[in-house]
Structure formats: structure tokens, C-alpha cells
């Protein structure tokens, strides 16, 4: 457990900074809702006049932006993107850092197996991701309930957070696998970020072009997006299943390769 606590400590500062970012995002984002709703102008109307591509980019879709929860759904796109970036960087760096900072020679001379190292690190990363998710949940509940009109359901926020958690798991595993398999651990985070941005752009492209709808299976950003979850009132089983399978496979590959390969020192 010493390695787990070391990682918790090492990631503490970064987690606090992300938390402040979330606070700003949720508070400032929902404050805009107040501005729109009190101006008397129908925001739905305003948005519907925008070109379709712009709508896709800001992530409105079919959301009812006149309700607090609907407006929050738009904000959720950005929270999801933040969560994905956090999870990916965390997954990549937590594995790659021993080699990047050349502390691998210290750690690997200790009586600890590589499997144990990965387990401790992934556990620490998982706890960080859960904290990130809970912070987002608490902030979201607080802000949405602050602005809601009577009768809106807050339960959907729990559902959205569950979806976000699954997306976080995917990107955590993607980051970990890149760092564990790659020959250049220093580049793991950068490579992962490129991949993340590509899938993000892909999710926008899918919104714009119905012909490539099948690509929604490739980009986790489409799995549990707000408009789908808010409309259905549930997470889609297919995507939950895909997530579980993908994460399991990626984690297995992470263990396997990190065990087998030479460390870069």
C-alpha cells in the first residue's frame, strides 16, 4: 500500500487544481443559465437559429435549454471532456512517470513485482477518478438545484455522472495502456491527448453527418452524451457493455506488456 499512498500524495495537488477548474466551470456555466432565463428571450429559439454545425460543436442537440437540467446537459459536454482529459493524463502519467523521471531504477530495485506496481498505481488512479466524479456530482447537484424550477428531476444528474464515470474509466485505461505498451513513456500523455482530441472531433463529426453514425461506437464521447441520456432516462446497455469489455481488455494489455517489456532507463 505504500506505493498507493505515494501516488495519492503525488496526485493530490493536481486533483485540487482540477477541482478548482470544475468549480469554476460548473458555477460559471450555470450562472449563464440564469442570464439566459431571466432575459426573457427564449434560448431554445436563439440556438435553433444557429447553423447545425455550430449547434453540434457547442453540444446542444435536442436539449431543452430553457430548463436548468437541459442547460446543464450542454455544460455536461465540457465536463465530460475535462473528465476524459484528466483520466487520460492520469492513466498515462502514473505509469510513465517512473521511467520519465528516471525513478524506475529506484523503484524496481525494491522487492515489489511489476504486477503489484501496476495494481497500486491503477488503484490510486481509480480513486482519483472517483473523487473527480464525486466533486463534479456535488457541484452539479448544488448548482442545478439552485437554478431549477419546480418539478425538474435531479435524478438525471446521477445518471449522467454514472455515464461520465464509465467514460473516465475508458480514458484512464487508454492512458495506462499507451504508457505500458509504448517504447517512449515520455510521449505517452501527448500521444493519448492526440487520440482523445481525435475521438472528440469524431463525436462532433458524427453529429453533423448521419451517414457516419456507425462511428459512434468508436468514440466514447458519444456513448453517454447528455441528449441521449436525458431523453432515454437511462444509460444504453450496448454502450455500457462496450465500455466494460474495452476497459477489461485494455487493463489486461497494460498488465501483460508492462510485465514483459524492458524498462526505458
Amino acid at each position: 500500500m505504500n506505493l498507493f499512498w505515494r501516488e495519492m500524495k503525488a496526485n493530490r495537488k493536481s486533483l485540487i487544481i482540477w477541482g478548482i477548474g470544475l468549480l469554476f466551470m460548473v458555477v460559471a456555466g450555470m450562472a449563464k443559465y440564469e442570464g439566459y432565463s431571466s432575459s426573457g428571450q427564449s434560448i431554445n429559439e436563439l440556438i435553433s437559429q444557429m447553423p447545425k454545425s455550430l449547434q453540434a460543436i457547442i453540444g446542444t442537440g435536442d436539449l431543452d435549454l430553457s430548463t436548468a437540467i437541459g442547460f446543464y446537459g450542454m455544460l455536461f459536454y465540457y465536463l465530460l471532456l475535462m473528465a476524459a482529459i484528466h483520466a487520460l493524463m492520469l492513466g498515462a502519467n502514473i505509469i510513465a512517470k517512473e521511467e520519465r523521471d528516471k525513478t524506475a531504477e529506484f523503484l524496481m530495485a525494491k522487492p515489489i513485482s511489476r504486477t503489484r506496481i501496476i495494481s497500486s498505481k491503477l488503484l490510486a488512479a481509480l480513486v482519483n477518478v472517483v473523487i473527480f466524479n464525486l466533486v463534479t456530482l456535488v457541484l452539479s447537484l448544488a448548482m442545478v438545484s439552485h437554478y431549477q424550477q419546480t418539478g425538474e428531476q435531479l435524478d438525471d444528474i446521477y445518471l449522467l455522472m454514472a455515464g461520465m464515470f464509465l467514460v473516465q474509466l475508458i480514458f484512464l485505461a487508454v492512458g495506462a495502456v499507451i504508457a505500458a505498451v509504448g517504447k517512449r513513456p515520455k510521449r505517452a500523455a501527448a500521444l493519448g491527448t492526440v487520440l482523445l482530441l481525435l475521438t472528440y472531433l469524431l463525436s462532433i463529426a458524427v453529429d453533423l453527418n448521419e451517414k457516419i453514425e456507425w462511428l459512434q461506437y468508436v468514440t466514447p464521447f458519444k456513448y453517454f452524451e447528455a441528449k441521449r441520456v436525458l431523453a432515454d432516462g437511462t444509460l444504453e446497455t450496448t454502450f455500457v457493455a462496450i465500455t466494460i469489455v474495452v476497459v477489461t481488455i485494455l487493463i489486461a494489455i497494460t498488465y501483460h506488456f508492462y510485465q514483459k517489456r524492458d524498462l526505458q532507463i
Binding site: 503525488a10 523521471d101 528516471k102 525513478t103 529506484f106 515489489i112
Partner: peptide, 20 residues
Amino acid sequence: FAPEIKKEIGYLPSEVFYYD
């Protein structure tokens, strides 16, 4: 038996890098 062996090994690398 790497982890087991290392219980009884003390290693000083040529270049020392630690968690800064």
C-alpha cells in the same frame, strides 16, 4: 524470483534520480 531476491539486495544506481 525478482521481487523475492530484491528483499536482500541494496542497489546504488550510477545516476541517482528521486522524486523531486
